[in-house]
């Protein structure tokens, strides 16, 4: 039975506020001490989980590559096949911090990705491989910076630019970009955006040769944060972060589930009572 000393104001409003931001419902009810406990504890656990998981434990959908010529889900132009992530059921309970995942899901569903189109210049670091197109197949790992400019100001399938490449042996070479370009989907749950195009450079004997370039450039934060991703990205995260990614995911689940207790408390009041019932001789065990 609800204790009359607990002032709930409008319980539905309080519950909705608690669902939006941990502790907001209690703040609205004037229960400031509990509001502070809920917001500090729940948001700290959530943010801690996000940090452990490299900022990527929250996502609502897992993307699978549909049948077709695209080698990866990022480079698939048609609408991707998506499967709900059950962990998100717990994460979404933490409220506003997990809502961007729903926005990102809608952006992907409503987006016809033009993977063979570059609409604005790109300047980014680059990581990838360089393969020789003719003669003996030779692949080299490279990093560096890239400047990619569409052939037309309003966007183009063709790009020009320069790759300032650094090879694994420390040698450097500026490679000229040219020809058709393939870019990964703009919105995708990976900070790295796939890029494939042709480049021109010189081989060891100084002859002009063409190479196939495959790699990744940076994706904007608002385009990857909490966005649906594929299993390749999850494999990369597990490889890079090891158990930290799993621990971070569990922390975000726990934060959401704890907020369920806060929502319930905002709507119905404390489960066991006000807290001074232990003074009655028969109710001493009620605290446990």
């Amino acid at each position: 039975m609800r204790d009359p000393r607990v002032r709930l104001r409008n319980p539905v409003t309080a519950a909705l506020l608690a669902l939006a931001i941990p502790g907001a419902g209690h703040w609205y009810q004037g229960r400031r001490f509990k509001a502070t406990i809920y917001s500090v504890c729940i948001l700290t656990i959530f943010v801690w989980g996000m940090i452990l998981g490299g900022g990527q434990p929250v996502y609502s959908q897992l993307i699978y590559r549909s049948d077709g010529p695209a080698p990866t889900a990022q480079l698939q132009a048609s609408a991707p096949r998506m499967k709900f992530s059950f962990g998100y059921v717990a994460q979404v309970l933490v409220g506003a911090p997990a809502w961007p995942a729903l926005v990102q899901e809608m952006r992907i569903r409503n987006q016809e990705a033009r993977i063979d189109w570059i609409d604005e210049p790109i300047e980014s670091d680059f990581q990838g491989v360089l393969s020789q197109s003719h003669g003996v197949q030779e692949t080299q790992i490279i990093s560096g910076t890239i400047e990619l400019i569409p052939a037309n100001e309003r966007g183009s399938k063709v790009a020009t630019g320069t790759l300032h490449a650094v090879f694994t042996d420390g040698s450097k070479q500026d490679l000229t970009l040219g020809g058709d370009v393939q870019l990964g989907r703009p919105v995708f749950g990976s900070p790295r955006r796939e890029l494939r195009c042709r480049v021109r450079g010189q081989d060891a004997e100084g002859h002009d040769v063409s190479f196939d370039l495959e790699g990744t450039v940076q994706r904007r934060f608002i385009d990857w944060f909490e966005a649906p991703r594929d299993t390749l990205e999850l494999d990369r995260l597990n490889g890079a972060l090891s158990q930290s990614y799993d621990i971070g995911s569990v922390f975000t689940w726990i934060a959401g589930l704890l907020n369920l207790l806060a929502i319930w408390d905002a709507a119905e009041g404390p489960a066991y009572g006000y807290g001074d019932e232990e003074e009655l001789p028969d109710d001493e065990d009620s605290a446990d």
Binding site: D3, R5, V6, R31, F33, K34, I37, Y38, C41, I42, T44, I45, F251, I254, L258, L261, A262, W264, D265, G269, P270, A271, Y272, G273, Y274, G275, D276, E278, A287, D288
Partner: peptide, 26 residues
């Protein structure tokens, strides 16, 4: 993590700050 869970759980059980903190510590 256990400290955070204890505080939130006990806050959802009781209303009095002293009782919440004491229960959470236990």
């Amino acid at each position: 993590l256990t400290a955070g869970i204890s505080l939130v759980y006990c806050a959802s059980r009781f209303e009095m700050p002293n009782k919440i903190v004491r229960s959470a510590v236990i």
